[in-house]
Every structure is written in structure tokens, then in C-alpha cells.
Design a protein around this nucleic acid. Structure first.
Length: 550
RNA sequence: GCGCUCGUAGCUCAGUGGAUAGAGCAACCGCCUUCUAAGCGGUCGGUCGCAGGUUCGAGUCCUGCCGGGCGCGCCA
């Protein structure tokens, strides 16, 4: 009996009461079944009676009694109590709960997947850091969270394309090229240019590739082209080492070279949303809620930055994506209005066809002090720095375990620690304990028996753990739907790992010394295997490994 | 000034309108001759920034105010 099964049972009970003529209401499509906070309130609770009371014109406790009487008859349900204003507190029969472990094993690596987003074709763009330098800490949050979200959406049945928008067009690239040239000539960085050791390094590599670069006719062009390519490879490589690979690396330049920008502008012109003023071409975004209209082609004839966004959005839609999701840093909050207006100008629905997720900034702390970053001083903290300090698993976990809405402080000392203070180690330790029990069992010649008698799992710790495992699919679905991967991390930590550690502490599994094999050994082994499966699957969704031993 | 966002325990953070607001850390007290003590149990700790409103019910939704962050260019 999973929560989903229980929902069906509750709904069936309501239908029965309605068909019986005792209740005159429309049966809701979805009913809420949740784990009560207080243990005395049973395994699950539903507020269905409170929801139906008003439309039914009865008081909630009356409705509760009608539904409870039916629900109590359902298979797998031990008891239903009416509590408080009209909650139904439900207790499952021991066997129904134990079945969860068997279901986990039957699904294996697929346990937790769901079809809530089936049929959606999603384009997920994230990181998209400029190719003018290494990926710094701001982009890393999205690398971890975007990749986790992609995995979650896929686990919910969506088709997902991970995409990286590579801004290799425009003035910033010129500044980058000038900076490389200056470095190669042994001159200081230009006033508006980029500094730091990586500039010198890239300049050096370009010089190695083209030894006579400085005597060529247009050396800056050589530095631009080769420098961008080298930076691009470096960014791709460090993301790959971080466990993040994209399906498409889209070059902004392509939009300008292929005529896609012009086509997008023509489309909008045809829809009547473009106008000329002061020698520039404008998009009337105010018509769609933006606070000012936006210049698309500047009066000097050059395309403004937004022109690329127009063409890029249209391109994504034409490639067949019905949902375009873009993850941006807090320094891009000002974009949202114009992007949504643009989406509407194309005749699409903002919030559905286009979603923009904004993530707040990340601070790194060492010895309780924030690490200050300065591009000028070259004290930029990069993805590699973070990985070097705490490792890929800890970095990814730290970055996804908090809501993107809140600014995040990452204490490097804490996350580098190999103790239980460090949340990722806490979860991984639970996973290794599960692995170790299974390994030790195998050494004793005990295999996991799918037919183990699960009614023997009656200990409160076993009960808690089973309830935790049963929640996994709905946690995955919710996290995907709300675009909140942190829900998975919190679930693994606070529900699964916690329950598993307690289970370990109170419920011996394997015989010690000359002890005979206990009746509980087989069902407990099965429960451990199910636990290991959920931890593996859950950590996998976050891009974090589940080690066999530590 | 306008817009977005955040404000929950000493600290870092959970809590998609439900019951007595949770977890980890920190502090203090316990539990290892036996499957990993890298763990477990317990104590302490809160006017959910403030004030109104909506609701049977508000940390959650609405309004105003206070405080922090970010953004408001024919830059990209």
C-alpha cells in the first residue's frame, strides 16, 4: 500500500458514500494524503472531510464519519480515526506497509519514477556562463541544480534537453580578445578588460598554437577565435568533471550568422509588435507587462543583446520544445519581465511555454568569513576551486540542498569534513551501511529473499523506514513539478537516512557469532536492500554517488 | 524611487492553507567486549521581521510598513 494506493482508496470511499446518497458533492480529482507530523496521529492522514464539508453543507466531523466507515473496510487499512476538526487518521495493516519494500525491489532503479510530466518536451537551459573566463561560483549553483532538475524531470517522464547558451558574440568577446592580446604582448589588462592568471595562460596557449600570431595582420582576431575556443573547451571540461554534460551547446553567433535574428524580428513585425523610433528598432514589450519597451536593433544598426534572445527562444520553440525553461542568477532578475513579454509577443503563454527560474547568490565561507571575490584582483572562485576544496559530491549536494530562492552560505570547513556534521556524508554513510549489511549477509551465505515474510516487520523503526521509502515517488514528482531539487535532498537526509540509521541502531539483522538465523533476518535484509535502492536512486537524481563503502 | 526576492531556534536551513512550527550544528547529559559510535537517545533553545486583512483554519494567501540581497542602459 503506497500513498498513491491510499489516495485511490480514500477516493473510492468518497465515491461509495456519494453513490450511496449520503453525500451530495462532486468527487475531487485529487485528494490529499500526508504523513502526520505527530506520530500518534497514525501512519497517514487526510483532510478530505474538511475539504468536502462546505460543498456538502454538512459539518466536517459528520462527513468524516461517513468516509471513515467506508475507508475502514478497504483492504490494507487497519484503522481510521476521526480527530480534531475532522481529520481522518489512518493506520495501515502491517502487511500492507511491508509490501512497500517488495515494490521498491520490484522497481529497482526505476523506483521513484513517475509519469506526472509525461508528454512534456522540455528545453532546460542553465549555466550559460560567458566564455570570457572560467565558471565561477555563481554559475556552479545552476550546474548542480540544473542538472538535478533535468534528472528529476526525466524521472517524471518528461523529455529533457540540457542546453548551454554560449555568448560568443558582442562587445564582451572583443574585450576578452583585447585582454588576451595585451597579455601576449606583456602589457597590463585593458581598462575594461579581464585580468587574472587564466588570461595569461590562454594567451600563452594561443601563442603556442600560432607562434607568429603577434606579427600577423590582425592578431586580435586570432586571439578572439582561438581564445574563445580554448575557453569553451575548458568550461566544457570542468563541467564534465562536475558530472554535468549538455545535450546542446548553442552558440549565440550562430543566430546572427544564420539569419535567425532577422527571421525572429520579421515574425514579430508581422505580428505588429515592432516599431521604429530615434533610428532604432523597438519591440513593444510594454504591451505585455514589461516596464519599458526594448531596443532590438540599435540606431547604429547593430543588434542589441535581446535580439539574440528573441531568435533563440523562437529557435527552441521551432525545434519542438513546448516548454522552455531558463535558469538565471539573481543578477538577471531584470530580464524576467522582458523575456516574458517577448514570449507573449510571439503569441505564447508566459509561465507555461517559457519559465524563468531565478537563483539567489552563493557565498562561500571559510573560518566563518565570506570569501571575497574580485574579478580585477583575480580572486575569482571557480568551479574547480570549489571541487578542490570539498569534492564533487559535497559541492553538488551543498548546492542542491537549499531552495534556490534563498541566498546560500556554504561553509567550506563544514563540507570538507568527513563527519556526520556534513549532511552529504550523513546520507552517504547510511547508504554504505546498507551496502555493508548486504555484503556481510552475502558472506554468511544469506541472500535477499523476495518472498520474505514482511508481516514480521513490526518494530517502530521498521515501520518508520517503510513509510519513508513509500514517500519517494511523490517526493520526486513534487520536486520536479515545483522545480525544487532540494526537496529530494531533504527527504533523503531527514527521512530516509535518519530512519535507516535508527533502524540500524535498534534492529539487528545478521546473526552474531554462533547465533542461529532469526525469523526477522530475511525481511530485514529485504528492507535494507530497499533502503539502499532508494538512497542510490535519490542520490543519483542529485548527481551524487552512493558509495559501497567509505 | 520602481520591480523581483528573502526575513522561521545562538548558527545553517526545511516547512506547495491544516492538528502541539521541524532538522542539523553549537551547548549540556547519556549509550560501544558482538552487523561501521563516520552512529543513536535525551535536555536546552521560537512574539515564524512588525501591523492589519481573507479563511472553519495563516509561517504559508492579500495589503501596508521595517530590514537584507539583486536588478532597473540604444551594456552584454
Amino acid at each position: 500500500m503506497t500513498p498513491a494506493d491510499l489516495k485511490d482508496a480514500v477516493r473510492a470511499a468518497v465515491i461509495a458514500v456519494v453513490n450511496n446518497g449520503d453525500l451530495a458533492v462532486a468527487v475531487p480529482e485529487d485528494v490529499v494524503v500526508e504523513r502526520p507530523k505527530v506520530k500518534d496521529h497514525g501512519d497517514y492522514a487526510t483532510n478530505i472531510a474538511l475539504v468536502l464539508a462546505k460543498p456538502a453543507g454538512k459539518n466536517p466531523r459528520e462527513v468524516a464519519q461517513l468516509v471513515a466507515a467506508r475507508l475502514e473496510q478497504a483492504e490494507g487499512i487497519d484503522s481510521v480515526e476521526i480527530a480534531g476538526p475532522g481529520f481522518l487518521n489512518i493506520r495501515l495493516s502491517g502487511d500492507a506497509l511491508g509490501q512497500v519494500a517488495r515494490q521498491v525491489l520490484a522497481s529497482g532503479a526505476a523506483y521513484g519514477t513517475n509519469d506526472r510530466a509525461a508528454g512534456q518536451n522540455i528545453n532546460l537551459e542553465f549555466v550559460s556562463a560567458n566564455p570570457t573566463g572560467p565558471i565561477h561560483i555563481g554559475g556552479v549553483r545552476w550546474a548542480a541544480m540544473g542538472d538535478a532538475l533535468a534528472r528529476l524531470l526525466q524521472a517524471s517522464g518528461a523529455k529533457v534537453s540540457r542546453e548551454y547558451y554560449f555568448n560568443d558574440h558582442g562587445a564582451q568577446i572583443d574585450r576578452f580578445a583585447r585582454s588576451l592580446l595585451a597579455a601576449a604582448q606583456g602589457q597590463p589588462a585593458p581598462e575594461d578588460g579581464y585580468g587574472g592568471a587564466y588570461i595569461a595562460e590562454i594567451a600563452q596557449r594561443v601563442t603556442e598554437q600560432v607562434p607568429d600570431v603577434l606579427s600577423q595582420q590582425d592578431p586580435q582576431e586570432v586571439f578572439r577565435e582561438r581564445g574563445v575556443a580554448l575557453m569553451f573547451e575548458e568550461i566544457k571540461a570542468s563541467l564534465h568533471d562536475f558530472g554535468v554534460d549538455f545535450d546542446v551547446y548553442f552558440h549565440e553567433n550562430a543566430l546572427h550568422e544564420s539569419g535567425a535574428v532577422e527571421r525572429a524580428i520579421e515574425r514579430l513585425r508581422g505580428l505588429g509588435h515592432m516599431y521604429e523610433q530615434d533610428g532604432a528598432l523597438w519591440l513593444r514589450t510594454t504591451e505585455f507587462g514589461d516596464d519599458k519597451d526594448r531596443v532590438v536593433i540599435k540606431s547604429d544598426g547593430d543588434p542589441a543583446y535581446i535580439s539574440g534572445d528573441l531568435a533563440y527562444y523562437l529557435d527552441k520553440r521551432e525545434r519542438g520544445f513546448d516548454r522552455v525553461v531558463i535558469m538565471l542568477g539573481a543578477d538577471h532578475t531584470g530580464y524576467v519581465g522582458r523575456m516574458m513579454a517577448m514570449c507573449a509577443a510571439f503569441g505564447d503563454t508566459p509561465g507555461v511555454n517559457l519559465e524563468i527560474l531565478i537563483g539567489q547568490l552563493v557565498n562561500l565561507l571559510r573560518d566563518g568569513e565570506p570569501l571575497k571575490m574580485s574579478k580585477r584582483a583575480g580572486t575569482v572562485i571557480t568551479l574547480e576551486d570549489l571541487v578542490e576544496a570539498i569534492g564533487v559530491d559535497a559541492a553538488r549536494y551543498a548546492l542542491v540542498r537549499s531552495s534556490a530562492d534563498s541566498q546560500l552560505d556554504i561553509d567550506l570547513d563544514l563540507w570538507a569534513r568527513k563527519t556526520s556534521d556534513n549532511p552529504v556524508f550523513y546520507v552517504q554513510y547510511a547508504a554504505t551501511r546498507a551496502a555493508s549489511v548486504l555484503r556481510n549477509a552475502a558472506d554468511l551465505g544469506l541472500t535477499v529473499d523476495d518472498d520474505a515474510d514482511l508481516t514480521l516487520l513490526t518494530h517502530p523503526r521498521e515501520n518508520d523506514l517503510l513509510l519513508a521509502l513509500a514517500e519517494f515517488p511523490s517526493v520526486v514528482a513534487t520536486a520536479a513539478e515545483l522545480r525544487e531539487p532540494h526537496r529530494v535532498a531533504r527527504y533523503l537526509e531527514e527521512k530516509v537516512a535518519k530512519s535507516a540509521q535508527r533502524f540500524w541502531d535498534d534492529c539487528q539483522v545478521l546473526p552474531k557469532g554462533d547465533e542461529p538465523v532469526a525469523d526477522t533476518t530475511a525481511p530485514r535484509l529485504l528492507l535494507w536492500k530497499a533502503t539502499r535502492t532508494v538512497l542510490e536512486n535519490g542520490l543519483g537524481l542529485l548527481g551524487v554517488t552512493a558509495p559501497e563503502r567509505m
